[in-house]
Simulated scan of single mutants.
Amino acid sequence: MNAADVDGLLELYADEVVFEDPVGSGRRTGRDALRAHFEEFIRAGITEIPGEPVAGQDGAHVLVPVTATMDYLPKGPGFAERGWLAAPDAPENARITWDYVLMMRTGSGGLIQELQMFWGRSDIGIAS
């Protein structure tokens, strides 16, 4: 994400990838939908700092804590409408920050087949 290399990112995912961000917002399927999702965040200038991954005992799942920041525009107003954060006084200069956990599941070919992002209202805010 930090390199804004959507094609490189998509090489990590199965064609039929299923993803949900945030969990509870509805599941989407396929690389085309994932491409659109990634491109939205790249347009917003996202920067992600991953934490230490935790591998599942099953050899297929991993959890990764992430701290991210991005421009308030264009996605921030939708977050504010949902009550997830307060709208800033100067939205054109504001940045959103949030902490979340990625859950990824790989398939037998090593590609990511499922991606879920867990975060809630207490995890998101306006960067100071």
Rank of each mutant, 00 (worst) to 15 (best):
L115T: 08
I46P: 00
E92L: 07
N93K: 15
I96Q: 03
T106R: 00
M117Y: 11
A86D: 11
D71P: 10
A36I: 00
V64F: 05
E39Q: 11
G59M: 06
I42Q: 15
Y100H: 07
K75R: 15
R35F: 10
L73M: 14
L85K: 14
G8A: 12
R35I: 08
E48K: 12
V54F: 10
T47N: 12
L115A: 09
I112G: 03
E81S: 11
S128Q: 04
S25Q: 02
M104P: 03
F38M: 08
V18R: 14
V66A: 01
F118R: 04
R43D: 07
E114R: 03
T106L: 02
R31V: 07
A14P: 02
F79W: 12
H37E: 13
W119V: 00
A60D: 07
G56W: 01
I124P: 01
V17L: 01
M104E: 05
A127W: 07
L63G: 05
D5C: 13
S122E: 11
A4R: 05
D123Q: 09
Y13H: 09
G24P: 04
L63D: 05
M103G: 04
H61F: 11
V64H: 04
Y100D: 03
V62F: 01
P77E: 08
A86V: 15
I42A: 06
M104R: 02
L12Q: 14
E114Y: 01
D58P: 11
I49M: 06
V101A: 00
F38V: 06
T69A: 15
G78K: 14
G83R: 06
R27G: 02
E20W: 10
K75Q: 13
E92K: 14
V17S: 00
S108D: 12
I126C: 10
P53H: 01
P50C: 08
A94D: 05
A127I: 10
G83C: 05
A44N: 09
I46E: 00
T69R: 15
R95N: 15
I49Q: 13
V101P: 00
A14S: 02
S122Q: 09
I124N: 00
D5I: 14
L34Q: 05
R82H: 13
L85G: 07
G120K: 01
A44Y: 07
V17M: 02
L34A: 06
A33E: 08
A127L: 09
T29H: 09
T69G: 15
A55F: 12
I46K: 00
H37I: 12
A68Y: 12
W119K: 04
V66H: 06
V66E: 02
W98V: 09
E81W: 07
A36C: 05
E114P: 06
H37K: 11
T97K: 03
E114D: 08
G78M: 08
I124W: 02
V6H: 03
E11W: 15
Q116Y: 12
T97F: 04
A86Y: 11
P74C: 05
P53G: 01
D7T: 04
G8F: 12
D32Y: 07
A36Y: 06
G78A: 14
W98T: 14
A80I: 00
P22V: 11
E11D: 10
L9Q: 12
G45T: 13
G107P: 06
G109Y: 00
N93R: 13
P22G: 09
W119M: 03
R95V: 01
I42F: 09
P77A: 11
E92H: 10
G8E: 10
L111T: 05
